[in-house]
Design a protein around this nucleic acid. Sequence first.
RNA 1: GCCCCUGUAGCUCAAUGGAUAGAGCAGCAGCCUUCUAAGCUGUUGGUUGUGGGUUCGAAUCCCGCCAGGGGCGCCA
Length: 602
Amino acid sequence: MFNSERDRLDAIIRKYYAEKGLPEPDAVQWASIPFAGEWGISTSFFQLAALEARHGALPSAIPVPERAQQIALEIADRIGIPTGFSHVEAVKGYLNLYYLTTAFTNRVISTVLAEGRDYGRGKPQAERVMVEYAQPNTHHSFHMGHFRNAILGEALSRIVEFAGFPTIRASYPGDIGLGVITIVWAYQKFYRGQEPQGVHERGQWLLKLYVEATRLLEPKDNENPEERALREAYDAERRELYLKWDAGDPEVRALWRMTREWSLKELREILEMLDIHIDVWFFESEVDEPAKVIVDELIKLGIADDERPEGPVIVRIDEKLGLKKEKYRTNVILRSDGTTLYLTKDLALAKEKFEKYGVDRSIYVIDVRQSLYLQQTFKILELWGFKQAEKCYHLGYGFVSLPEGAMSARRGRLALFKDVYDEALRRVLLEIEQKNPDLAVEQRKQVASQIGLGALVYAVLSVDNNKDIVFDIESALTFDGRTGPYIQNAHVRASSILRKAGGMPEAAPYADELTNHEIQLVELIARFPEIVRQAAIEYRPLLLANYAYDLADAFHSFYHAVPVLQAETEPVRRARLALVAATRQTLANALRLLDIAAPEVM
RNA sequence: GCCCCUGUAGCUCAAUGGAUAGAGCAGCAGCCUUCUAAGCUGUUGGUUGUGGGUUCGAAUCCCGCCAGGGGCGCCA
C-alpha cells in the first residue's frame, strides 16, 4: 500500500546520503510503528549516523543517537507531510509517519473485500517448488510425530503456493526395508489369512504384529541356548524373506503388496481428514532399481569407492569435496550384499524430482535427526553435478515425545493420531453441549471435527519447528487462550454479526475518526500480504500462526468494545460492518493457510 | 573425539540487530436483560543459563564455559 508515496520518501532519504558523499543503502528499511493505537510507518537513522562518523563527515564527534535524531529532524523537515499521511514526527532517532486513518482504512477494507479469498496472494513466481512430507513408513500406524510432519508440510505448501510459487506436494512413504519385512514375516508365519475389519483397526493391527515380532527377534538378557537358537532361526528367516523380496519372489511380493495397501488405505483416509491432497506419490520400493543403476554411475565417475566384496560401496564426501576437516564424513550407498540403502534411493528420487518434475527448489520436511544425512545427500548430488543441489532445503523439526518418554513403535508406546482425534471429538462435543446447545445436532459432528482438529493443528504450528514437543493430550486439547479454537471463535463471531446484519450492506467508507480498536484491526489486516511473503521465503508457518492469533485477539477486543449492529449512526454501522467482513475474510485466509477450518458457527 | 539443536516470567512458548523483552496457562480482582463468556478488562510475575567480545544499540551476531537433547560408513 502507498507504494508511490514510499518511493518518493526513499528518494529523499537517498538524496541525503548522496549529499553527504555516503554510499547509498540497498533499500530504506521501513517498519510499522510498534505502539498500540499509533499507526503508520517508521524508519531510523542510527546506521546513517554511524556511517557519517566512520567517514569523518562530521566536524566534531556527536554521539550516534543524538546525531540520528538531528538527521530525523532534518529529513522530517524535507519531506513535509506526504499524501495519505496526517503528520510526521522525529523522535529518538526515528522518523515516524502517521497515516491519515480514514483514507488508509477505506483503502484496506475495499482491497480485502474486492480480492476476497485471494487477498494476500503473491505475484506469480517462476521457481517451481516441491515439498516432500507426509512420508510415514507403511505397515505402521500414523502417530502424532507423523501428524506434526504432515501439518508442517501442508501449511508450508499452502503458504508457498499462496505466495506465488508453483508448488508440488509429494509424499514418499517408506514401503520397504527391514522393518517392513519384519511385519510381513510375522504375518506370514503366525497370522496368514487374517484380516481385521475397519480401515484404522487393520492399519493398527500391523503395528501390533511389529511389536510382537520385535519381541521374538530381540536378544533377551538371560537367554538359554534353546531360546537363542530359535531367535537366530527367526532372524535368518526374516533376512531370507528380504532377499526373496529383493529377487522379486511373486508370493512374497503379493503378501507385501497386500499388507502395504492396508497401511496406505489408512494413511489416505487420515490425509483426507486433514484436507491434505498429495500430487505425487513416490514409493521407496519403486526407486530401488534405478538406485542400483546410480551406484554404478557414481563408481564410474569416481565419486563412489567400491570396497566389495570385503566392504560396501561408499562415498568419502569430505575427501571428494577437498575438505581438510571432517564435516560430511563418509556414507555407504550400497551394502556389500548389493542391496540398496535409504540414501541410495534418495539419490534416485532427487534425480527424478529434478529431471521428470522440473523442480527448482526441493524442500524436505523431515525429522531434525536426519540433518547430517540430508546434508550428505545434498553434497553427493552436488558432486554428481546437479545445480539444483544448492536449492535443496531440509526443513527439520524437533521430534514429538510423550510425557513418559520417547515414542517407540516397537514398544507400542505411541500417541496414535486416530486415538487423539477421537478424544478431541469427544471433548468438543461435550463443550458444544454445554456452550451452544442450540446448535443443530446434525451440524455438531462436523463442527466438533473442525474445532478439535483446529486445536491439534494450532498446537503443532504455534511452536517453532526446531523445538521438540512433548505431546500432552491435556494441553493439546485446551480450547482457551492462544489456541486454534480461539481464532476460529473470532471467525464465528464475525460471521454471526454479518449473518444478523442480513448480509453485506452496500460498501460504506469510514468518514469519522476511528477508535483504537478499529485502527489496530485495520493495521493487522493490512499487514497480512507481507506476513505471507515472509513466511514463504523463510519457510516458517509459525509466523502465520502468530499472525492469526494477533488478528483474532484484536478482533475479540474490538468485538467487546465497539458496537457494530447497534452503532450510533447508520453510516458508522455500515462502515463497521465492512470492517467486520474484511476481518472475517482475512481470518479465513490465514486459517486456510494453516490448514485450519474456519467455521461459521461453533 | 567431532558436528547440530535448545536454554527467555512458576509452567508452555513468542520476539531473527532497534524505541518499554511480549502472549497463553496458572494466581488475584472484575465483566453475561447488550452482535456467541471457546470471550473481554485490570493485575502479579524478568540479572533472556553463564563469562567475555563486536556494535551507536545484543535475547538476537562472534568466542569460551555450564546444563539438556540429537547425530556421526553397510537402520530408515
